[in-house]
């Protein structure tokens, strides 16, 4: 599948933003993060900014961005529509939670309740994003049980590492946040490793035989329907070279998971200034790592339509 930059930016930025929002919404009311005004302003602005920029960028790849409002109408059947509705609904509790934290310096009681609501809606929104891909049957690398947990976990990983970095910058570092970041990163790594193992070891159910219904033997394309690439081949036929995929996976393993784990663990042992540096580096590393991971998510996905164009497996 063609990796559109706007979609990669959208899913990674909004994922990190929702992860950060969810953690603020839970750890604030839990008493782990104090309702300090300037930290709240920075963290909530970063989270809502990432979410909003991501949502905005997702409209850039549309043929008719001015009609984007129509995408809110078909929530009964469409995960894309549900994602849009959930994203907009999330602004309500998030906005109230932000008012309480920034203007009243409160993140407990009723204001904490809005925080929990924000966390729940953030999870729902990221879940809807994942389901857009997970529900597409013609793409084996997307239509499997690892996609939904991977999207949720990676949102949490990036959000937790961003939160840890911000807290250290404001001198509010807390062992529970460090522990959350470590646990989320380890879990995200495990899920993503399992995903890659799965797509490497399992074949798609569709084959050139099922695509054509010619089942007496090997089916080989001897004459394509057209001489140049058409829309289908440009959009669905994109495939990353295997050797690059292997290298990029290593980059993703290192920058999204291994390096952040080491750096985050180090923050617990280092003096405050160095700890803040390590936490910031971990946040920067995971931000790069998830972009590589998301690019691979698209580039490694093979669409069943390619079976009509000479692919031996999808």
């Amino acid at each position: 599948m063609h990796p559109a930059f706007s979609v990669i930016f959208f899913t990674t930025a909004s994922g990190a933003g929702y992860g950060l929002l969810a953690l603020l919404g839970v750890l604030g009311p839990a008493g782990v993060i104090p309702a300090e005004r300037w930290f709240g302003l920075a963290a909530l602005a970063l989270a809502l900014g990432a979410v909003s920029l991501g949502l905005l960028s997702s409209t850039f790849h549309l043929g008719h961005p001015e009609r984007a409002w129509r995408a809110l109408t078909q929530w009964r059947s469409s995960w894309l529509s549900r994602e849009g509705v959930a994203a907009i609904v999330t602004y309500a509790p998030a906005g109230l939670f932000a008012i309480g934290w920034v203007f009243l310096e409160r993140n407990d009681g009723l204001w904490g309740f809005f925080g929990v609501g924000t966390a729940m809606m953030s999870a729902v929104t990221v879940g809807c994003t994942a389901m857009i891909y997970r529900s597409l049957k013609p793409i084996h690398q997307w239509h499997n049980g690892f996609v939904l947990p991977a999207y949720l976990a990676l949102a949490l990983v990036t959000g937790a590492l961003w939160l840890n970095a911000l807290l250290h910058l404001f001198g509010l570092g807390h062992w529970a946040v460090t522990a959350t970041a470590l646990a989320a990163t380890a879990a995200g790594w495990a899920i993503k490793a399992a995903y890659w193992w799965f797509i490497d070891t399992n074949a798609a159910i569709s084959t050139p035989n099922t695509a054509t219904g010619l089942r007496t033997g090997r089916v080989r394309l001897i004459d394509a329907p057209h001489t140049e690439d058409n829309y289908l081949l440009k959009e669905m036929g994109y495939r990353v070279a295997r050797k690059h995929a292997a290298k990029l996976r290593l980059v993703a393993h290192g920058t999204a998971f291994a390096l952040p784990l080491v750096l985050t663990a180090a923050t617990a042992a280092l003096p405050p200034v160095l700890a803040a540096g390590a936490a910031l580096l971990a946040a920067a590393s995971v931000s790069l790592g998830v972009v590589v991971e998301r690019w691979l998510f698209f580039a490694e996905a093979r669409h069943a339509v390619t079976l009509y164009y000479g692919a031996e497996a999808a």
Binding site: P208, T212, T216, V219, D223
Partner: peptide, 8 residues
């Protein structure tokens, strides 16, 4: 599209 299919 034009395919070639093996038959035995």
């Amino acid at each position: 599209h034009t395919f070639e299919v093996s038959v035995g």
